[in-house]
C-alpha cells in the first residue's frame, strides 16, 4: 500500500539494519565524489553494488529502473559536454560551433561514472529497505518522530492522491480537454483539476491532527517502539569502519595531494 520502490524479498541485504545500509550508501557516494578517478566508481559498481543486488534478488529491477533514470542523463551528458565543453582543446571532429573534444568526453566520463554509481547505489538502497524500518531505526537514533510521521504518512497518501488525480484527469480527457492546445490553455485546464483535489485533502487535515493529538503525538515522553529494529555488533563495527573510510576518502587526497 505504499508508493516506494521497495521490493519485499528475503535476503541478507534486506535483513541488514537500515542505518547500516544508509551509512554504506553515504560512504560510497562520498568516495566516488571525493576521489576524482572514474574507475573508482566503476570498481565500486562492479565490486560492491552489483554483487549486493544479486544477493538481494533485485538485480533485474535495479537494472531496469536505473536504465530508465540514467539513459536520458548519460546521452545528454555525452552530447552536451562532448560537443560544447568549455575546456575542450583536443578536437576530434568539428561542425560549426560544435566540436567533439577529448577533454569534453573525459569530463562526461568523470561526471557520468559518478552519476551512475550514485543512482545505482541509492536505488538499491530503496529497493531493499522498507520505509517503515528505516523510519523506526532513525527515530530510535534520535531523529524527531515528526520527520518519521511526515515521511511515512506521505508515502501512504500518494497512491490515494494519485488515484483521485488520475480519475479527474481521465474525466478531463474524456471531455476532450487537457491534451491539446497551448501550454497556457493546458494550465487553465489543470486548474479545475487541482481545486477540488487540494481543498478536499486540506480540509481533512484538521480532523487528522485532532486524532493524532488525541493519541499523544504532541507528548514529550521518550517514545518507545512496538517492533524492535534488528542490529548486531558486526554491523555496529562496520558502520564505524565505513565512516572512517569516508573521512579518509575526503582527507587523503587533500593532505597528500596525490590525486
Amino acid at each position: 500500500m505504499t508508493s516506494t520502490l521497495y521490493l519485499d524479498r528475503r535476503s541478507p541485504v534486506h535483513r541488514l539494519n537500515p542505518v547500516t545500509k544508509l551509512v554504506a550508501m553515504l560512504t560510497i557516494v562520498v568516495i566516488v565524489f571525493a576521489v576524482p578517478l572514474w574507475w573508482v566508481a566503476g570498481l565500486i559498481v562492479v565490486g560492491v553494488v552489483v554483487p549486493a543486488a544479486v544477493v538481494a534478488h533485485c538485480g533485474g529491477r535495479l537494472l531496469s529502473l536505473s536504465l530508465k533514470l540514467l539513459l536520458p542523463i548519460i546521452v545528454v551528458l555525452v552530447l552536451v559536454q562532448g560537443l560544447t565543453f568549455p575546456g575542450g582543446k583536443t578536437v576530434l571532429a568539428e561542425w560549426g560551433v560544435l566540436a567533439l573534444t577529448t577533454e569534453g568526453l573525459l569530463f562526461a566520463l568523470g561526471i557520468g561514472s559518478r552519476i551512475v554509481c550514485l543512482v545505482l547505489t541509492s536505488v538499491l538502497f530503496v529497493l531493499t529497505t522498507h520505509p517503515g524500518d528505516l523510519m523506526g531505526a532513525l527515530t530510535e537514533r534520535g531523529m524527531s518522530p515528526k520527520f518519521s510521521y511526515i515521511i511515512s504518512s506521505t508515502l501512504q497518501l500518494i497512491p490515494a492522491f494519485r488515484d483521485r488525480a488520475d480519475g479527474i484527469l481521465l474525466a478531463q480527457q474524456a471531455r476532450g480537454l487537457a491534451v491539446k492546445g497551448s501550454p497556457l490553455a493546458r494550465v487553465k485546464v489543470m486548474m479545475p483539476l487541482l481545486g477540488p483535489l487540494v481543498l478536499g485533502m486540506f480540509t481533512d487535515v484538521e480532523e487528522r491532527s485532532t486524532a493524532m493529538e488525541a493519541r499523544g503525538f504532541g507528548s514529550a515522553a521518550r517514545r518507545t517502539a512496538l517492533i524492535p529494529v534488528p542490529d548486531s555488533t558486526a554491523q555496529r563495527v562496520s558502520r564505524w569502519l565505513m565512516l572512517v573510510l569516508a573521512v579518509a576518502a575526503i582527507v587523503v587526497p587533500i593532505v597528500f595531494g596525490v590525486l
Binding site: 500500500m1 505504499t2 522498507h130 517503515g132 523510519m135 518519521s148 510521521y149 511515512s152 504518512s153 501512504q156 497518501l157 481533512d204 480532523e207 487528522r208 486524532a211 493524532m212 493519541r215
Partner: peptide, 11 residues
C-alpha cells in the same frame, strides 16, 4: 471519520 483517525504513519 475513521479514515482520518488512522495515523497514516503505520504499515
Amino acid at each position: 471519520n475513521p479514515f482520518n483517525q488512522i495515523s497514516g504513519a503505520k504499515y
